[in-house]
Nucleic acid binder design. Structure first.
Lengths: 157, 157
DNA sequence: TTAGCTGCAAAAGGTTTGCAAATTA
DNA sequence: TAATTTGCAAACCTTTTGCAGCTAA
């Protein structure tokens, strides 16, 4: 398995693995991910792409997302039990997910480097990417008098 | 949504939410999770349970796992694109997943508290549980001359 | 006795795949 | 032109649900 190179700044066109072609659909998916922003689902991407061109198939979007990931331009996160979340590798960051309303908050990643160093030193593990999700309750939902507005499918987490 | 109480040391029988019954199946699933050890899939649990009693249904195992989670005895992790992983809350810890061979390594959680404090102070987020997965390459697979032996379904992660 | 649990079978939801036709380099 | 990509539809896999019969308290 090829371990993808590190993130790079946002670009006009996606990076391509050798022999790969830059098609209309690929360009469209790439733009869409930049527009929607971080932690979007495949479903969201597909919907936006179909607005621009209804003939693009869902499976095509999935295939392109997989390619973008393997090229290292996009990364996947598993925030909740719904679909996988995609984001530009350049925009990657830890997430905090509210268990009550489902809101996703971005959090800093200052502490992660320490973790990597620790792992390399103790078990010789080479870190490629750290996936950190904080589950809890956001300020709004913790406020007195507030009620839940959305429950997640796997609310037993 | 009920936010479950914190973990407790390994016990003979699972904790039950009020009004819940301790059935043969529940006891069996509970024992099985302790035997298999951390980050087991629902499928693994079901297979082991069926060895002891082939009549136990898959759906029953899922329902019991959900109950154990809601009681706070078991927690879920999303390590890879296969099924969810379950483990005793008492055994919870961050994971490092090797992208080449799929092996899971346990890592310490010394750094996580700092993260919680930071989040509470900056955005008022109350942390219930931190889900930390490190993706990378383990010492064995990084060794020169080694080849991949297993690819994950979503190997583009 | 009776609310809660189980087994079965079928549905749901997200993702992947096979294949012929279209398209890019 | 030749190899890659696409669109479509169907398959897949994990998890959930409906319901009638069973069972722990």
């Amino acid at each position: 398995m090829a371990v993808a190179p590190g993130p790079r700044p946002e670009a006009e066109t996606p990076r391509l693995d050798p022999g790969r072609r830059l098609t209309r659909q690929r360009r469209l998916v790439w733009q869409t991910i930049q527009e929607i922003g971080p932690h979007c689902t495949a479903e969201q991407v597909t919907a936006s792409v179909k607005q621009a061109n209804p003939r693009v198939a869902r499976s095509t979007v999935y295939r392109i997302l997989a390619d973008l990931c393997s090229a290292g331009d996009v990364v996947v996160a598993r925030l909740d039990a719904g679909g996988l979340r995609y984001e530009l590798a350049a925009a990657e960051h830890p997430h905090a997910v509210c268990q009550v309303c489902g809101k996703v908050i971005h959090v800093g990643d200052e502490l992660l480097e320490t973790f990597e160093e620790h792992l390399a030193a103790t078990v010789g593990f080479r870190t490629v990417r750290i996936d950190l999700t904080v589950n809890g309750v956001c300020r709004d939902c913790a406020a007195p008098g507030r009620r839940a507005t959305r429950r997640q499918r796997h609310d037993h987490i």
